[in-house]
Design a protein around this nucleic acid. Structure first.
Lengths: 152, 152
DNA sequence: AAAAAGTCTATCTTTTTTATAGAGTTTATG
DNA sequence: CATAAACTCTATAAAAAAGATAGACTTTTT
């Protein structure tokens, strides 16, 4: 059961992050209905319920979601969609937003194939890519990826 | 032996692609000296020689490098650095340049967590990220990542 | 003929990703 | 207060990908 089915999807967002986005969208679009069941999100978005559990828990531990146990419980947003930048979610679940460790702002790591980072042309170009990417992902929020209009 | 040592380097260029860039840089900067030995590149750039063999072979099969067997042999560029866009190398060795399969130009794949791609907000944002990335990676070439100045 | 150097194919190991299992805890409510 | 609903936590397993290696083969030079 290969979920990527024949494409070559390297460098992409993990399923974990993709599922997180879809779950957050569902939560935002149903924010008026009180806590939402994990099982409801899983069914609606076609995600393994047990896998989704872990993801929602991570989002909760990061202060993005709240939860309520017991009957009538479920998950809900702790922030408005507008307050949740996409970069926040990606960094939380996938880590660095950069094509090379040596240009990552949050997960920097020295590269060991170049002698001097200061004069590495690769470093320059990849920094530019990172900046262009972050400009979008830090300014676009959950609100921007919603289908329906939701009250702020 | 974890070569990523504690960072969380997902979504990044693979070692294969990174090694390819470093090898190409070395070949460009030594283009005047005739064919360059795999072993020379491996030593200079701190890459496993056997792993590098495979990479150089892929670059050769893609028409980017040429080679000469026997004594005095080695690898050499078939194009000028200016004619080799970075996107070409990444696509060859890593595949798609996109954060989601559904926004990849060269490796498109339908996403199965959203009902309708046409009204998927995620799709819109990720297309913008792809465009911003490609604008850089398709216009920047091997020439732009060289340290030394090399004759065109 | 011998040595140098790339070619090819196969396999192995490690790491990461994805997914699952199951016992535990909290809460609403009849 | 018993019960069921629902999230919590930790561990583990399965699958895929990345990274690396081995060795026999071919071509070329001298």
């Amino acid at each position: 059961m290969n979920i990527w089915e024949g494409c070559k999807p390297f460098n992409m967002l993990s399923k974990k992050t993709q599922y997180a986005f879809h779950a957050l969208i569902h939560l935002a679009e149903n924010a008026d209905k009180g806590p939402v069941l994990i099982s409801e999100i899983a069914q609606e978005k076609n995600i393994s319920i047990k896998f989704l559990e872990n993801i929602l828990l991570e989002l909760k531990n990061a202060g993005i979601l709240g939860s309520k146990k017991g009957k009538g419980g479920g998950y809900y947003l702790l922030k408005t969609p507008k307050e949740i930048p996409l970069a926040r979610i990606i960094r939380l679940l996938d880590g660095a937003i950069a094509l090379l460790p040596c240009v990552s702002l949050n997960y920097y790591e020295k590269c060991d194939n170049c002698r001097d980072e200061a004069v590495c042309g690769l470093h320059d170009v990849m920094s530019k890519v990172r900046d262009a990417t972050l400009k979008l992902l830090e300014n676009k929020t959950l609100k921007d990826i919603l289908t329906k209009n939701v009250a702020i």
